[in-house]
Design a protein around this nucleic acid. Sequence first.
DNA 1: ATATTGAATATTGGATCCAATTTAGTGTAC
DNA 2: GTACACTAAATTGGATCCAATATTCAATAT
Lengths: 219, 219
Amino acid sequence: MKLTSMDISTTASASSIVFDALRKAIIQGQLEEGEPLRQDEIARLFNTSRIPVREAISRLEEQGLVRTQRYKGAVVTELSPKETREIFDLRALVEPEIIKNAVPLMTQELLATAREKCAAFSASKDPMEWGDLNRDFHETLYSASDLTFFKEIARNAIDRVERQIRAQLVMSNGMERAGREHFAIIDACEAGDAKRAAELTRLHIEGAKESLLKHLPGA
Amino acid sequence: MKLTSMDISTTASASSIVFDALRKAIIQGQLEEGEPLRQDEIARLFNTSRIPVREAISRLEEQGLVRTQRYKGAVVTELSPKETREIFDLRALVEPEIIKNAVPLMTQELLATAREKCAAFSASKDPMEWGDLNRDFHETLYSASDLTFFKEIARNAIDRVERQIRAQLVMSNGMERAGREHFAIIDACEAGDAKRAAELTRLHIEGAKESLLKHLPGA
DNA sequence: ATATTGAATATTGGATCCAATTTAGTGTAC
DNA sequence: GTACACTAAATTGGATCCAATATTCAATAT
């Protein structure tokens, strides 16, 4: 008799678990900008040694989410207004291309779930979940695209300004406006108008950038 | 009496040294695509333990230069023609923006050294150094730009297709053509015509992509 | 009071050892 | 000869220990 390969839930490595958890904590703002990451504190938290923690931190550094100095350790990266602007400019360049590529590949199912997420975002009253719902909507649309590297870039760029995005959503009428723009984007996607969806995405990002930078000092 | 700060050569960490060496070996093609990276072999090579090696490898994976499987180790990433095309498309999107931003910031010194490197590239008869000279020229131009994240993206994208770029330079008249295009780009830079320099850069990348994909099977 | 020295503590970087898993190879039955 | 089980070697992931450096803070001199 032959056993099926079972494929036991591929237990992730400790370093991956720590990496994911730290990444999430950083982009959700649970760790403040400039806050140092103490290796053995984190190790105790996850019941591991410092080895996987160090590996996780070095990967976070490679992604730009933390920066480290020899013998001083890692701190959560802080972005200047100028750097924030640059990342939004990068997003405004890359993400429309993803949408343009994605629209012809979107299935009816995907459009349906995207519209659901769009509605869920606009319906939410809890500011704590706005960031996740917003991201969820965009990632659903992007998931139809087969531009893996473009998506990788976008994901990292969004990671780096996730905190600012969350701030932008709660400030003034950021949430209301984002909701309107989301509906416009998905309308264009359903209409199969890739160019329009891309342009609306660009404007969506540029708009967020402007409203954000209005509230920041320089740049 | 006061001593000048001396600034003793900040001895880099072992993991950084290993990382840099491996990265260089990969992009220069000394390590074949798909070739596995054995941790203790590398450790012996650098007279260190496997700890810094593992950190270096995890950073390489974060950059997409290797991919790893749990308990199986890391192998040098292989790119399908489709993926190669996508990375060149990414470059064609991002690098013109860097040049457009850089042109107004270029000093006379920078233009002079860039022209020297441009000439050095075209004058070189040794195919082994074409890749480095080509990269050197482009990085010199990009160095004038203050778009740090754009440059980060470009650097990584170039890393990932560096082997293909080298192949493209030696095939057919790739070298001759690249030389011509380089001179055209730097002419536009010296003329202060940022838009033209950007467009020429885009065409330079698109051209390399086309001539490369002509010699590859699918996509 | 302020600056400076120096020891104690905290923290990171790396080496060595052990555990978990894969891979290679060997033998055996058919 | 081939398929299968089983052992041994190779390889990676992680824990513990030690070394190198930074930070803190008390003691001292000016």
